[in-house]
Amino acid sequence: MLSSISWQHYFAAVMTALLLYYLYIALRYYRAEVLKFLKRNGQTVAFPLNEARPVPNIMGKAMPDKGVSLAGNDEILVMEATPDEYDPASAAQKTAGHPEIVPDPSRELVSEADSLITAFENEGDKQEFISLLKILIGSYKRFRDEIDFPETLAGVLRIAQNKLSFPVSAADLQGVWE
């Protein structure tokens, strides 16, 4: 049966089906536009596909939460930028009214080393501890003038002897401060 249908008949049937389909869609969904287009007798006006329509408002108005207030630009407090380098004079000036804040880099170094030692209390990897301690001490090189390195290193080694399961000596940290 299909062998009796020629390609011309097949394409004519497909085109007729497509024409009927799009005619149905146009009449079903665009009836008002089609009728308006057909009522323009003989006028050469393009089919108004993108006619300006009012856009429905599908979202509500944005409202702040209850108890939340907005601050203006003049009410926002912003701190001044701090310099990258440590300045003992400016640090002392900033902490003058606060005796509990003492800018002492050697105490900070010992405190951070104590935290590192505490992390390695149950670990037995001496080489990893030494490498991390060298990195920590190296990060305090910028405070070279404020830190008494031999005294600070002695304090770190005392803490390490009391807490660590492996021995740490000054020879293990040789050359880290130079």
Rank of each mutant, 00 (worst) to 15 (best):
L35I: 13
A119D: 15
E51Q: 13
V168Y: 05
R107W: 03
S90R: 15
A32D: 13
A96M: 15
Q43V: 07
S4L: 03
L133H: 05
T82L: 15
L157R: 02
N57A: 12
L136E: 06
P103A: 15
P48L: 11
G97T: 08
I58P: 09
S111Y: 08
D148T: 02
V34R: 11
G60V: 04
S106V: 00
E80I: 04
Y86H: 02
Q127I: 05
A46T: 03
L70P: 01
L157I: 12
R144C: 05
R28G: 02
H98P: 00
W7N: 03
S169C: 04
R28E: 04
T82E: 09
A26K: 08
L19E: 08
N162D: 15
V55A: 12
N122Y: 15
I117Q: 08
L35Y: 07
Y21A: 13
L164V: 11
K134R: 13
Y22A: 03
E123T: 10
E108T: 01
I101H: 00
A71E: 14
G97Y: 12
E108Q: 05
Q43Y: 00
F129N: 11
A32P: 10
P64L: 12
V156G: 05
E108N: 03
S111V: 01
I5T: 11
A89W: 09
Y10E: 06
L164F: 08
I58N: 14
V68C: 03
Q161C: 00
S169G: 10
T44E: 00
W7A: 08
S169E: 11
R158I: 09
Y21G: 08
K36G: 12
I137H: 01
A81N: 14
P150K: 01
L109M: 13
V156P: 06
A171L: 07
Y24Q: 06
T16I: 10
S4F: 01
N73R: 10
I147A: 10
P88Q: 09
E178R: 14
F166P: 14
E128Y: 02
D114Q: 04
L23C: 12
E33D: 12
D125H: 02
